[in-house]
């Protein structure tokens, strides 16, 4: 597939000086973008233009640019990580857009993710949830020999699938309730499925959910939007497992 050139795009983007200021949309025109470039490359080119015109460049989060770190964000044309599935914004390509289109770029919106500047939001709330229970308290040693600790293949697979979560927060951004349940359920599941994590499973579910509530995330109503928008396709069956762990912990206390 040869790359085409998008002659003109309008980028309607959220500009906000700092956490305190009000913020508003600005629309910029950008020309001659290759459909082979990534969305973030397009943003780089736009920022270059802005700098040349003496305008403050648009702040946005990015790091690995290969879909593994979870740093990039952006709500593009009404969807977290834009109009593609199972990708992060750094993996989104401009071939997903049409020439002449107006592309709306917003920060993640959630009470627990306040905007710091432009498109950058503060996602330390997710770290705080992890600190509340997303760990194993004792040193479990180095990598054990294969099959030294028996783990059923299905369990290993489900644990690995849950461990694929990169903590990007797209689930929160996508959820109509700004709930972090998919994130929390992934973190609870990948430990609850393995022997090293099982010991603290009950306390972990309780503590992480309490933290999530305290930080102002909403509750889950099982719409399933998170799973669809998650770049790693974390399954909502993990949420069922989290519910189960949490309710068990509540009843046994």
């Amino acid at each position: 597939m040869a790359d085409k050139i998008l002659k003109e795009l309008k980028i309607k983007v959220w500009r906000q000086k700092n956490a305190k200021s009000k913020g508003k949309f600005e629309t910029y025109v950008i020309n001659d973008i290759s459909t082979g470039s990534s969305f973030l490359e397009m943003m780089d080119i736009l920022n270059n233009d802005l700098i040349e015109k003496g305008i403050d460049p648009i702040a946005f989060d990015h790091d690995c640019r290969e879909g593994i770190c979870g740093t990039c964000s952006l709500h593009i044309n009404g969807r977290p990580h834009g109009p593609d599935t199972e990708v992060t914004t750094c993996q989104l390509h401009m071939r997903k857009f049409k020439d002449g289109e107006t592309i709306i770029v917003e920060p993640w919106r959630a009470r627990a993710f306040p905007v710091i500047k432009d498109l950058v939001v503060d996602r330390t709330a997710l770290d705080k949830i992890l600190q509340a229970g997303g760990f194993v308290s004792v040193n479990t040693g180095g990598v054990p020999d294969a099959n030294a600790i028996p783990v059923a293949r299905d369990d290993a697979e489900e644990a690995m699938d849950a461990a694929a979560c990169i903590g990007c927060g797209a689930c929160v951004a996508a959820c109509k309730n700004s709930s972090a349940m998919l994130f929390v359920s992934a973190k609870v599941s990948h430990l609850a499925k393995l022997p090293q994590g099982q010991v603290e499973a009950a306390a972990r579910a309780m503590n992480m959910v309490s933290k999530m509530d305290e930080l102002g995330f909403g509750g889950c109503t099982n719409t399933g939007a998170c799973e669809v928008e998650c770049p790693k396709s974390i399954s909502i069956t993990n949420i069922a497992r989290l519910n189960r762990e949490y309710l068990k912990a509540r009843i046994s206390r």
Binding site: P83, R111, G219, T221, T223, G224, V228
Partner: peptide, 29 residues
């Protein structure tokens, strides 16, 4: 429940495209 969940997003999105990700009924309970 719906009030609590509504409070969790004080600034709403200017554009939302949710039809591909969740059912209409689930969003309008």
């Amino acid at each position: 429940i719906e009030y609590q969940n509504w409070k969790a997003r004080p600034v709403k999105y200017a554009k939302r495209n949710m039809s591909g990700a969740s059912s209409w009924a689930s969003r309008n309970m």
